[in-house]
Write a protein that binds this DNA or RNA. Structure first.
Lengths: 152, 152
DNA sequence: GTTGAAAGTGTTCCCTC
DNA sequence: GAGGGAACACTTTCAAC
């Protein structure tokens, strides 16, 4: 499962445009369509390519507000973490949740329509999460840069 | 530019699978292929669909480590922020950078191979960012959930 | 929103290196 | 082992309705 330069070029191209046709992709990486197609299939099968998705514009969809929420739990028992994580995974407004080293236990990334909508999310979901000792929300004023493309 | 239930179904489907064929999509949303295709084109043209991308597996690509870095600048002058943001945007390991309200000025999301690689990123890039007063790095131990799909 | 026909694409086969 | 070319089926695309 080792990647050569052509594999990396394929991945870079597909990270930019996941709907690029195999014909175009094969030109970019200087390969015949069939050889290129075989490589893409291998990258998908090996799981290097996890999925293809459409990225939507949060502004135009009416959820331009990003809030990061740091949460500290009351303890570190496994069943406490499990219960918390299962509840978090069910909140549609939560895009990411990371278990953290250091001060806070969890860091959540949440999208909302505005501050009022975040208040709703807080009331309906966050305040009902089990085992929470402390919670601190930080609003993003502006997103300087954002990419889904991993460095290759 | 108002979305009806069919538009939302299209967006939900494409957020899950951006390479879904128009034929399949039209079945899911109960529309003829051409009618469905016209709607997708409108959603692309209006910018609700920003782009299509391939999502790669960070583990299999050798960058399983996520670090969040909070940065405070020495001041709030526009040219200070501009210089900082331009420098940040050039670091390939930075996936996200947000200007924040509250304590820290910026929050960066960074991927690395391991802690040693993060030390390299810190030395090569972060420590050379202009105007930085304070910097605090927090490592993610595990990603509980992660999605690019916005709630609809 | 629907139908239908033309152009383009993904996919598989077999052959070559 | 991996790449190239050609054939087929399927899709996208864009008329006209």
């Amino acid at each position: 499962m080792t990647l050569d330069e052509i594999d990396r070029r394929i991945l870079r191209a597909l990270q930019r445009d996941g709907r690029m046709s195999n014909a175009d992709l094969s030109e970019v990486v200087h390969l015949s369509p069939s050889a290129c197609h075989r490589r893409v299939q291998r990258l998908e099968k090996d799981g290097l390519i996890d999925s293809y998705v459409a990225l939507l514009d949060p502004r135009k969809l009416g959820v331009p507000t990003i809030v990061f929420v740091e949460i500290t739990l009351q303890g570190q028992a496994d069943d406490l973490l499990d219960a918390f994580e299962k509840s978090v995974a069910r909140i549609p407004d939560v895009l990411e949740c990371h278990l953290m080293a250091g001060t806070a236990d969890y860091l959540l990334k949440i999208v909302a329509e505005d501050t009022e909508d975040f208040a709703r999310i807080h009331r309906q979901h966050l305040s009902r999460l089990p085992g929470v000792a402390q919670m601190q929300s930080s609003f993003a004023l502006r997103t300087v840069c954002k990419t889904t493309a991993l460095p290759l």
